[in-house]
Design a protein around this nucleic acid. Structure first.
Lengths: 139, 139
DNA sequence: TTTAGTGCAAAAGTTTTGCATGGTC
DNA sequence: GACCATGCAAAACTTTTGCACTAAA
């Protein structure tokens, strides 16, 4: 299924109209597995030549978050980071010196998370992991 | 040990001067185990009759976060939530609904990190983990 | 006495909202 | 055709910063 059609179906499921602006936001999110701020999304849309208002980006993200299709994380104060929920879950290994990124194919922390949740009576729904260090070349 | 003295020692450990304002911020944080926003801390200080500027609250929180005495979580976009924590390395489990925070006593991911580093030729120096879900009461 | 810390107010960001217009169902 | 969604600009907030002044060490 083409991405435009898939995005349209996702929006319809949430009871939202499939406007070009919303599809465009979803496409940018698809290309940002580690999430992006509203400003970043807006910048990338403009870079693509799409004319989407910043307010529309915020409203779209709010609607998608409400509908559960997007997670709103927040790394730094005063700046939220939005991430598509359905995108394949994985973690990154980042080199502190050269910024090289190794994408880990899969996340094998599930057993650890399950134990954690059980121990504290939580139903774990999300997690994020950032690992940084020095790569072989920089060490 | 009286709280004022304990707070003073904590500040000294971080290389910070023990001003009345900083001690007051620490006392409010002590009374907010699930964290409080900078604005909330400021409001509670004024309610107590303390005259502390909002900028000082932000600067104090930044210094404490830098020193590892405080965690900066972020529940809602555009609003950071600060919470006192032990200085030892640890992770938090946060409830998505009621914002309750469970501090995990220790980090037992070291073996996992060691394996990860070896597999990709990295010397791992830092990591951060955020786990969110629904607590027993909210599930 | 030295230097870090404070208060105030202004500035810089991010996020939200009002309202007329345009597009989707 | 009804009504949701958009764009723009202004407003509301949170957070940061500059500067003169105060107080801790």
């Amino acid at each position: 299924m083409p991405t435009v059609q898939r995005d349209g179906a996702l929006l319809a499921d949430l009871g939202l109209r499939a406007t070009p602006q919303r599809v465009a936001v979803l496409e940018v999110l698809s290309g940002a597995p580690d999430g992006a701020t509203a400003q970043e999304i807006h910048d990338r849309l403009r870079a693509r030549g799409e004319r989407v208002g910043l307010a529309t980006v915020y409203r779209t993200l709010a609607a998608l978050t409400e509908g559960g299709a997007v997670d709103a994380l927040a790394h730094r104060p005063g700046e939220a980071c939005y991430r598509l929920c359905g995108s394949a879950h994985h973690h990154n290994l980042v080199c502190e010196r050269c910024n090289r990124v190794v994408e880990l194919a899969e996340c094998d922390l599930e057993p650890w998370l399950a134990r954690l949740g059980d121990a504290h009576g939580f139903r774990v729904t999300r997690h994020s992991v950032e690992v940084a260090g020095l790569c072989a070349d920089c060490a």
